[in-house]
């Protein structure tokens, strides 16, 4: 039996993502941030449950909706706020912005699907170097419309790339519901290339943690691509104030599929309240620091 996951740790990580993203959405209209953003509210259990199993040398590829992945990877909140503000102290010194983060073995890119071959190539490089490191790539349901993803699945399977494809199926791509964008089903796409795929419809961090644990164990035992489809829900707008979905339906979804609400009963009230208070303070301090940070100087 694997040890019980650290429930308080999972809750804390998800709460950090939630409070970070809420702060972003609240502060955006005040002009504090610059550019765009795609928040992870509602999907916190995915990154938190999956990346809990990451080894120190493992590699993560993320997409436009990358804040949650970055925070779960261990990324610094102040540096992320600062990157969204375009500050010199940002993750990439303000050059990348919300969608283009790199820190240690974490990379994100805002061009949908383009990360698939890069993740496969990274995994193949680690295999060639005999490093034992794995790559994990997060893709949305919308990215499954990109042809290069399928070229990458084919190559990953042919060449035995140690990579875990995590599809976060939130049933929507920007404003387009999955019914208008995706024919057939998602696991069959992986099956076509002989890539083992499991699927979980849950927002429960413990369930996702367990499913990912099995995937990582299998991947470390037999290197070669695997896939995990996580059916999930995006609570907020695609970017900012651009949600076209039915408000009553969204209210019901938020009620039923909130990862925080699902995990909260497993913690003692006092423990949960302590975590929440600590995270509130941490996020507020990170935001204040980033706000006070300097902008980079443009080259003359």
């Amino acid at each position: 039996m694997p040890p019980m996951p650290d429930q308080a740790g999972l809750y804390r990580q998800m709460y950090r993502i939630r409070r970070f993203e809420q702060t972003v959405l609240d502060a955006f209209p005040k002009g504090v941030f610059y550019g765009t953003t795609h928040t992870y509210i509602g999907q916190e259990a995915n990154a938190t449950g999956v990346l809990a199993h990451l080894g120190a040398d493992d590699i993560v590829f993320s997409n436009h909706r990358c804040h949650g992945h970055f925070i779960a990877y261990g990324g610094d909140l102040r540096a992320l706020f600062a990157e969204l503000m375009g500050k010199a102290t940002g993750v990439c010194g303000g050059l990348g912005g919300s969608q283009h983060l790199h820190w240690r073995n974490f990379y994100s890119n805002g061009v949908l699907g383009s990360t698939a071959p890069v993740a496969v190539g990274s995994a193949l490089a680690e295999k060639a170097k005999d490093s034992q490191a794995l790559a994990v790539i997060f893709l949305g349901d919308g990215a499954l419309g990109e042809g290069v993803v399928y070229e990458s699945l084919n190559i990953a399977a042919l060449w035995g790339a140690p990579v875990l494809f995590v599809v976060e199926n939130n049933h929507i791509a920007q404003t387009t519901p999955i019914e208008l964008a995706l024919a057939g089903d998602i696991p069959a796409r992986f099956a076509a290339f002989g890539i083992p795929c499991s699927r979980l419809d849950s927002s429960d961090a413990l369930e996702i943690h367990a499913a990912a644990e099995a995937e990582f164990a299998a991947l470390r035992a037999t290197p070669g691509p695997r896939a995990l489809v996580l059916d999930t829900q995006r609570f907020g707008p695609h970017s900012k104030g651009d949600d076209t979905r039915d408000e009553a339906l969204m209210a019901r979804i938020r009620q039923q599929r909130d990862p925080l609400r699902l995990l909260a009963p497993r913690l003692a009230d006092t423990q949960r309240e302590t975590i929440e208070a600590e995270v509130e303070a941490e996020v507020a301090a990170a935001f204040a620091q980033a706000e006070a940070d300097p902008f980079p100087e443009a080259a003359a």
Binding site: P117, A123, K129, I155
Partner: peptide, 27 residues
């Protein structure tokens, strides 16, 4: 071991090479 003949997938090849280069190889 260092020459990988590939499927007809130019876009993925370039991306795979990008990933290899990011991780210290010289493809």
């Amino acid at each position: 071991d260092r020459v990988w003949t590939s499927p007809v997938s130019e876009a993925a090849l370039a991306g795979v090479a990008a990933g290899m280069a990011l991780r210290g190889l010289r493809p």
